[in-house]
């Protein structure tokens, strides 16, 4: 049996005060193996993005536990969580989210230098080369196309060699052709590095490319 990367137990999360409160996750439990690629799918409001935000430590759960690489991230304070995320996780967002004042190369360098990784510059350059953007390394995000921006975001997410990569609708803001190319790249790199991938998508084609598809419905697994 493969090594477990993520263990989610009875996870609950709601938003809003009093009567207006909406329970988005109602006791989700889930296990993800190391190197597995998992697609979280479901209708809007089913809780898939909320689950991703909790898994990536971007938000705090109301109840339940999340264990990643044998560390319970739900019991960590904000500082510990930030450090843990910086060292173990990569995130690719639908809106790309590159730091607007940093070039493509600097965006990839940022997580490496935060962790004071040796040979950060070489790593960043080789990653940009791997995503086919070495010629655009000194361009600012405003000078890149959507597809290029997402490729930089993928390079940045993989720069620290994370044990797990989260992707939130990664092709959602790209046209079909570009999206397909960028996703090819994502899956190729994940496969090459053996990184665990948890991906939120509405796209059934994209979901089918993952090793496992997890359906969410009304805040629970379908």
């Amino acid at each position: 049996m493969s090594e477990l990367t993520v263990v989610v137990e009875n996870l609950r999360k709601g938003y809003g005060p009093g009567d207006a409160r909406v329970e988005v996750l109602r006791g989700v439990s889930l296990q993800i193996q190391k190197g597995e690629t998992v697609a979280l799918v479901g209708k809007s409001g089913s809780g898939k993005s909320t689950l991703l935000s909790l898994l990536a430590g971007l938000d705090q759960a109301d109840a339940g536990t999340i264990t990643i690489a044998n560390r319970n991230i739900t019991s960590m304070d904000e500082g510990e969580l930030t450090q843990f995320r910086a060292a173990n996780m990569g995130i690719v967002f639908q809106q790309f989210h590159l730091v607007s004042t940093l070039t493509a190369l600097e965006n990839v360098l940022l997580p490496l230098e935060l962790l004071r990784r040796p040979r950060a510059s070489e790593t960043a350059r080789s990653l940009l080369e791997a995503v086919g953007l070495s010629h655009r390394s000194h361009h600012l995000p405003s000078q890149l196309s959507g597809g290029e921006s997402q490729r930089v975001a993928i390079a940045r997410a993989l720069a620290i060699n994370p044990s797990i990569l989260f992707a939130d609708e990664p092709s959602g803001n790209l046209d079909e052709e570009t999206g397909e190319k960028v996703m090819d790249l994502l899956f190729r790199m994940v496969e090459a590095t053996g990184t665990t991938l948890v991906l939120v998508t509405h796209d059934p084609e994209l979901a089918r490319r993952c090793g496992r598809v997890v359906h969410l419905e009304h805040g629970g697994l379908a």
């Binding site: 930030t82 940022l110 935060l114």
Partner: peptide, 16 residues
Amino acid sequence: RRYYDLALMKSLGFSS
């Protein structure tokens, strides 16, 4: 305007 930049930097490991 740079709220997302700052949030992103936080997600990448910047402390408060």
